[in-house]
């Protein structure tokens, strides 16, 4: 086994472990932290299914962002929708035989690669030209965009400029899944692409990418508006009731 293969094999196991354990820990800690008061942003749904719809509109359509700023919405929606398609398109490297619908979306996945980069660049340009956004931007915000751009651009480079042996790449990933390790082609662009993906997986649970699980746990969006009908009481707050006069 070559050094490159060994590094990337171990790298993917390590990154997957960090991603899964890190995210699971975050989600567990969000779940176990109580929300002591009812704080949905009104007007809020009065039923559980209403909350599911509200959350669906937020997660799929970015409803609040649309209300807020059409440019950010456009670039963010473009980036996220494209990223989703690109990720689904990449399923073909992990399954054999490839499912029918994964084959179906292959051509769209390519366009999505360009759309993803366009969205990223739009968001990135805002960080320079809008003074308010420039003010709130940290170095890590630029790095995150750079990382995603590297992933996108190196991916498209492999499609259009410096092709790699995707049969071998697929064998490598199937090998990872089956614990039957296969060599990874040593093409520099591929290594950059996969290296950036490894970094992304590792930083995910420690960075602002936590907005992905966070959105589902946001009390201002996921609570049912039923405060008068049902008493909502956190475990830590309940003992206070014993101290009141009546």
């Amino acid at each position: 086994m070559s050094l490159v293969t060994a590094v990337y094999t171990l790298g993917f196991y390590f990154a997957t472990l960090v991603l899964v354990v890190g995210l699971a820990y975050r989600i567990w800690s969000y779940t176990k932290t109580p929300a002591p008061l009812k704080v949905p942003i009104a007007p809020a749904p009065v039923t559980r299914s209403g909350v599911v719809l509200r959350m669906g509109r937020e997660v799929i359509l970015f409803e609040s962002l649309f209300k807020s700023n059409k440019w950010i919405w456009l670039f963010a929606a473009l980036f996220h929708a494209a990223l989703a398609l690109v990720v689904l398109r990449h399923l073909r490297y992990f399954i054999e035989p490839v499912w029918f619908w994964v084959n179906l979306i292959q051509p769209f996945g390519i366009y999505a690669g360009f759309a993803m980069i366009a969205g990223l660049l739009g968001l990135w340009v805002r960080r320079f030209v809008v003074d308010r956004v420039r003010y709130i931007t940290s170095p890590s915000d630029h790095l995150m965009l750079a990382l995603l751009a590297v992933i996108g651009i190196s991916g498209l480079t492999m499609k259009y400029v410096a092709r790699t042996d995707i049969i071998a790449v697929k064998a490598f990933f199937l090998g990872l899944l089956r614990f039957d390790w296969q060599p990874l082609p040593g093409d520099p662009v591929l290594l950059v692409h996969l290296g950036a993906v490894l970094v992304l997986m590792i930083v995910f649970p420690y960075s602002k990418l936590l907005h992905a699980p966070g959105v589902f746990f946001s009390p201002s969006r996921n609570q049912v508006d039923n405060a008068r009908e049902r008493r909502h009481l956190a475990e830590w707050a309940a003992p206070l009731d014993a101290g009141r006069d009546t």
Binding site: R26, S29, Y30, T33, P34, A35, P36, V39, S64, L65, S68, N69, I72, A76, L123, R126, V130, R132, V133, I136, T137, S138, D141, K208, L210, H211, G214, V215, F217, S218, P219, S220, A234, W236
Partner: peptide
Amino acid sequence: LSKNRALKVYLDSCVKCGACT
């Protein structure tokens, strides 16, 4: 942070998109 989920989630989740600015 251990008593209020909102605080924890809000401190983690901001992506600095600028929508609120």
